[in-house]
Simulated scan of single mutants.
Amino acid sequence: MSRSPIERWRLMLGRYADRRMGGCLGTGDQRRDAALDYLYGREYGKRGIETGPREASLDPTRMKALDWLGEARSLFPETVFDKLKADAIDRYQMTDLLKDPKVWEDLEASPATLRTLLSFQDRADPAMQAELRRIAQAVIDEILQKLRTQVMRSLTGRRNRHQRSPMKSANNFDARATIRANLANWDAERQRIVADRLRFMARQKRHLDWTIILCVDQSGSMTESLIFAALMASILAGLPGVRVKMVLFDTSVVDVTDQLDDPLALLLSVQLGGGTDIGKALAYCEGLVEQPTRTVVALISDFYEGAGPRRLLATVARLSEARVKMLGIAALDDSGRADFDRVMAGKLAALGMEVAALTPSAFADWLAEVMV
Rank of each mutant, 00 (worst) to 15 (best):
P53I: 00
F363M: 13
E105D: 00
T276P: 15
F340K: 09
L266M: 13
I278G: 15
E224L: 09
S269K: 04
L351M: 08
M152I: 15
L11I: 02
K347M: 11
E189H: 09
V343P: 06
R158Q: 08
Y304Q: 15
L268P: 08
V151G: 11
L226Q: 05
D106Y: 01
N172C: 13
R161G: 13
A202N: 07
Q137S: 10
L132C: 05
R148C: 06
L226D: 04
R176C: 06
S154Y: 04
A56E: 12
T178N: 05
R148M: 11
R47M: 03
D106L: 02
L84I: 02
A233V: 01
T178E: 05
Q191Y: 01
A368Y: 04
S335P: 13
R10C: 03
K85G: 00
I212S: 12
D174H: 11
M12Y: 03
W366I: 12
L39N: 10
N171H: 11
G28H: 11
I49R: 03
R161S: 14
E7M: 01
W9P: 02
H207T: 12
G14E: 00
Q121S: 13
E78W: 05
S4W: 06
D209G: 15
L97C: 10
L288H: 10
G279Q: 13
E142D: 08
G26E: 15
Q137R: 09
R158I: 11
V324T: 12
R42F: 00
V80H: 02
E369M: 06
R310C: 04
